[in-house]
């Protein structure tokens, strides 16, 4: 492919579709990260939970027909997703138990889970398939896609709403965008969500009005685990239809960056996740050029760093502007006196 065709493809409706696909496995864990962060128990194991869920989703989805023959074919991917999510929840529960019951540091507990997930998935994969790289020997199913009717024939719009090949988006992509609205509603319009934010901001005050801090933090962690697990399922049963060693490639951490870049609220986090998704999509497009792949895989992390730098530079500029404004005001007041 020439540079021109790559450029053309970047400025196209199809590229927007690519961004939407690439953002899905960042938006979901980012929403999870947001909830855990606001509850004061930041879950940095999003990465490991995604990886584990992605792995078990594929394994159960692919080997389900062997283990439980006779079910309708459409059941197996759902069964895989269910088991994947359960595996993610179990890992989250381990973190929650170690942190909330035994007093372990939440960062260290989560770090351990990340290491366990990255080694454990490869270990089981090798035991099952004899392959340490991917599950390409298994015939793994994908979660269904949804095609929005009627818009397909409209140019551009059709591609945006139903993907570049008009095959529709994976159901989990819809779940991702829906989750942003639901998380917002949950955090700001429900009792539990309000309690969660109170616990994160001042746990002693929350406890003093009878809020069960530990219970709220359990729920927050489990919600973050659930959302991260969905993101993992999307990777291996939507974005791709196989499991690869460490296929999350840092998305769990990028999701955390999105939480802070997005100023710890759902809409901001969504926007940040879309920016990171766009960087990932760009990486995929440029991969077709004759540029060393190492350089191209550096795009998402560079965008992350650049975004954080820009954010902080802008904040400091804002502060300096405030200081200047204030000084000018002081000076003009003095002239009056």
């Amino acid at each position: 492919m020439t540079f021109e065709t790559v450029l053309a493809s970047i400025f196209s409706a199809a590229f927007i579709a690519t961004i939407i696909r690439a953002s899905t496995p960042i938006i979901l864990p980012a929403m999870g990260g947001l909830i855990s962060e606001l509850a004061g128990v930041i879950n940095i194991a999003l990465e490991g939970i995604m990886l584990t869920a992605a792995f078990f989703g594929v394994v159960v989805g692919a080997l389900g027909p062997e283990w439980l023959p006779g079910l309708p074919v459409w059941v197996y991917p759902w069964l895989g997703a269910l088991v994947g999510v359960l595996a993610g929840l179990i890992l989250t529960l381990i973190i929650a138990f170690f942190h909330l019951e035994l007093g372990a540091d939440v960062i260290l507990a989560a770090l351990a889970i990340n290491i366990l997930a990255s080694g454990g998935t490869v270990f089981i994969m090798f035991a099952l398939t004899g392959d340490k790289g991917s599950t390409s020997t298994l015939a793994s199913p994908a979660m269904p896609s949804i095609i929005i009717p009627f818009v397909g024939s409209i140019p551009v719009v059709g591609q945006i709403f139903n993907g570049e090949n008009l095959t529709g988006y994976n159901i989990i992509t819809y779940a991702a965008f829906l989750s942003v609205a639901l998380v917002w509603l949950f955090l700001y319009r429900t009792r539990l969500g309000t309690h969660l934010r109170a616990v994160g901001e001042n746990p002693v005050a929350a406890a003093s009005v009878g809020i069960d801090v530990k219970r709220v933090q359990y729920i927050a962690l489990l919600m973050s685990g659930f959302l991260a697990a969905l993101g993992g399922i999307n990777l291996s049963m939507g974005y791709l239809t196989l499991f690869q060693t460490n296929m999350t490639a840092g998305r769990g951490y990028i999701a955390l960056a999105a939480v802070f870049l997005g100023n710890r609220n759902p809409l901001g986090t969504l926007i940040a996740a879309l920016i990171f998704g766009a960087a990932g999509a760009l990486e995929a497009q440029l991969g077709t050029l004759n540029i060393p792949s190492q350089l191209i895989t550096m795009i998402p992390p560079i965008v992350t760093i650049a975004a954080l730098v820009i954010y902080n530079v802008r904040r400091q500029a804002q502060m300096a502007a405030n200081a200047r404004k204030f000084q000018e005001k002081m000076e003009s007041e003095h002239k009056v006196v």
Partner: peptide
């Protein structure tokens, strides 16, 4: 009990702080 170190959530409004833990709800929403 009114504690010496106030037990308030700084980013919440006064009304939100007063009802915290026993919020009035309409249906499932606040």
């Amino acid at each position: 009990m009114v504690h010496q170190n106030f037990m308030l959530i700084p980013s919440f409004t006064i009304a939100q702080n007063i009802v915290l833990g026993h919020e009035p709800v309409k249906g499932r929403l606040l």
